[in-house]
Amino acid sequence: MRQNELKMPINKLSEEPKQVLTVNKWKFMVWLFIITIIMLFASQTSAYLVRRAEGNWVEFDIPQIFWFSTIVLLISSVSMHFSLQSAKKNNQSMLKMAVAITFAFGIAFLVMQYLGWQNLQQQGVFLKGNPSGSFFYVFTGLHMAHLLIGLGILIATFIMAFRMKINSKNTLLVEVCATAWHFLDLLWVYLFVFLLYFR
């Protein structure tokens, strides 16, 4: 492949390249990793349903704070979207700010989830005990663990943005970051709706 490119005079690059490859390999890999995460949570939620169908299931109220954390996460997705837009427009200061805001909202989300856990414990729902509660902790915890990976990518993006390595010609990292972040956001919405609906 590299050889093939080498042989080619630079001016030919402006011609319409025939693509054998339609997706960037990094983006492709990110999607594959997303599939593995989907399978993980699909199996968790199916296990939840199978177990719930067997009865002996204690219901509890989901603390209000989880609604707010959901909103916070949704807002962070909006600012993530702005990051990508500003990278495409080459707006460096806007890019840095939007990434930073996304990061801050991500942290806020984690804190709120943690507060939510404390509310649950005040309610008398613990990790130990009826599986309905245990599942709640495991779902939220697993999602938070994945969100930490998302925050890691955000930090990498921020560093690259700070070093001016990201511009309208080189948006790969921001794109990957946005894909992962929107996915994690969507994943939480799915889990939240699931937990509300199948209480």
């Binding site: 199996s43 177990r51 245990s134």
Partner: peptide, 27 residues
């Protein structure tokens, strides 16, 4: 890619049962 995450799920819940006192598989 499609099946190993599910084993991870199974193992994770088992780890919780063993080490954190949950009752996913126990009664």
């Amino acid at each position: 890619i499609l099946s190993f995450p599910v084993l991870f799920s199974a193992a994770l819940l088992l780890i919780f049962d063993r080490s954190f006192g949950t009752s996913f598989y126990l009664s």
